[in-house]
């Protein structure tokens, strides 16, 4: 398969990574320039972080300065949700067959 251009890149970014959408876009544009990804649309799927309640298993988004589970009141602990940082897929244009 010959790729002519990358037209779109979809990435998944969790809240806990600390990466900011505007910054990612800025660096993406800089790095993509003069490559086959130049001008590609960057789609960022942002994931809100969730705590897991060790008592009842509920996954929940915490309120600021609070850790309490909305179902049972126990303090939640960090889960894997919100730590994502990966490229989900890329959209490409193939070279037309001659």
């Amino acid at each position: 398969m010959q790729v002519r251009a990358i037209t779109k890149v979809t990435i998944v970014v969790g809240e806990d990574t600390g990466f900011m959408g505007d910054s990612i876009q800025f660096y993406f544009d800089r790095h993509a320039a003069y490559t086959i990804a130049a001008g590609a649309k960057l789609e960022i799927r942002f994931v809100r972080a969730k705590l897991r309640c060790p008592a009842c298993g509920t996954l929940f988004e915490r309120k600021r300065f609070e850790f309490a589970c909305p179902d049972c009141g126990s303090d939640g602990v960090p889960s894997e949700i919100g730590k994502e940082c990966y490229i989900e897929n890329i959209e490409i244009e193939e070279e037309e067959k001659s």
Binding site: R4, Y86, I87, E88, N89, I90, I92
Partner: peptide, 9 residues
Amino acid sequence: GKKIIQIQK
């Protein structure tokens, strides 16, 4: 001519 390639990396 467009195609989606899964990366998940």
